[in-house]
């Protein structure tokens, strides 16, 4: 909209403004001075009993999520045998931004983390991911119903600040999932530090997560970059899984690597929330610090790992 800035245009942060006094329909000041009986107040909007489904404003359905959890539970427990350390660092209430390392051609870290936190802590987790998902019929809808949200800064802000939810992001994005097997657990650039800025603006802590097992669940041995460009996807991988499970099943089926997730102590920021802008160098410093924390935790966890498959 080209007209956002005109006289008395709405402030960008309407949330903190005090509520305007509620007004009767016929305000004496407007209607010329004489007092008239106030007209019937509009009915108070109430959705009770009107809804047929349970899809929330983010497209997530708790019922669909429960079905997904039931289906995913054997994969989580028996296939990946996921184990957590430091779950107590995830706040039991209030918003927090979970930040993890990303790996594997089709990354299993997101569903494992979401499933783990939801089953262990009973809190919903919204997984922020590339909006390219939304372009794909059926997949996009299922992804959205099971807790996927496009990684738009305003979506993250609303989830964290307005709704005080847990949101999960992988700042490496497709640079993390698209790396070759020989680069596994070498963290890529953490975007432009946008995730730190969002957490500062929303006034919530960042909880860093170090995940191992995700890279070996679907390692990339070769990338067909020209084909990827042709069909307009970030990368087109040939995975080790395709040699094990065949070219088609190998596209979606992960290897049974042992998953370990370590939750690092939350990072709180010394910055006022709801600012228009934040100091660039402070944001970049914090982003780099969190990245280093996760990288060091990964190295330590890998030092202690005796076997890729048995941990």
């Amino acid at each position: 909209m080209g007209s956002g800035g005109f006289t008395g245009a709405v402030s960008p942060e309407p949330i903190d403004r005090p509520l305007a006094p509620s007004v009767a329909w016929t305000d004496p000041a407007v209607s010329g001075g004489e007092l008239v009986p106030v007209r019937r107040q509009p009915p108070v909007p109430d959705d009770d009993g009107l809804r047929r489904g349970d899809v929330d404003g983010w497209g997530r359905s708790e019922r669909m999520r429960a079905v997904a959890r039931r289906l995913y539970d054997p994969i989580y427990r028996r296939w990946f045998r996921a184990e957590w350390e430091g779950l107590e660092h995830i706040p039991a209430e209030g918003g927090a931004l979970l930040v993890g390392n990303h790996g594997g051609a089709i990354p299993s870290d997101a569903p494992v983390v979401m499933h783990g936190i939801e089953t262990e802590l009973g809190r919903p987790v919204y997984g922020m991911a590339d909006n390219l998902f939304r372009l794909v019929p059926v997949v996009g809808t299922l992804w959205s119903r099971t807790g996927g949200v496009p990684a738009h800064p305003d979506n993250a802000y609303r989830l964290l600040h307005d709704e005080q939810q847990l949101a999960l992001v992988f700042p490496e994005g497709t640079k993390g999932t698209g790396k070759l097997a020989r680069d596994r657990y070498q963290l890529r650039r953490f975007g432009r530090g946008g995730f730190v800025e969002i957490a500062m603006r929303a006034g919530v802590p960042i909880v860093p997560l170090a995940v191992i097992g995700n890279e070996e669940a679907m390692p990339i041995v070769y990338k067909a970059s020209r084909l990827a460009r042709l069909i307009n996807v970030p990368y087109f991988p040939v995975t080790a899984n395709q040699f094990v499970f065949g070219p088609l099943l190998g596209l979606v089926m992960p290897l049974p690597s042992k998953f370990r997730i370590r939750v690092l102590p939350p990072v709180y920021f010394d910055a006022a929330p709801n600012q228009e802008r934040y100091n660039r160098s402070q944001v970049m410093d914090q982003a780099e610090r969190i990245r280093t924390h996760i990288q060091e935790a990964l190295y330590e966890m890998l030092r202690n790992r005796r076997s890729v498959w048995f941990g």
């Binding site: 709405v10 404003g57 939304r134 496009p150 609303r158």
Partner: peptide, 11 residues
């Protein structure tokens, strides 16, 4: 597909 889920007046 790349819209935010809730447009504010300033967006």
């Amino acid at each position: 597909y790349d819209d935010p889920y809730f447009f504010r007046e300033t967006m």
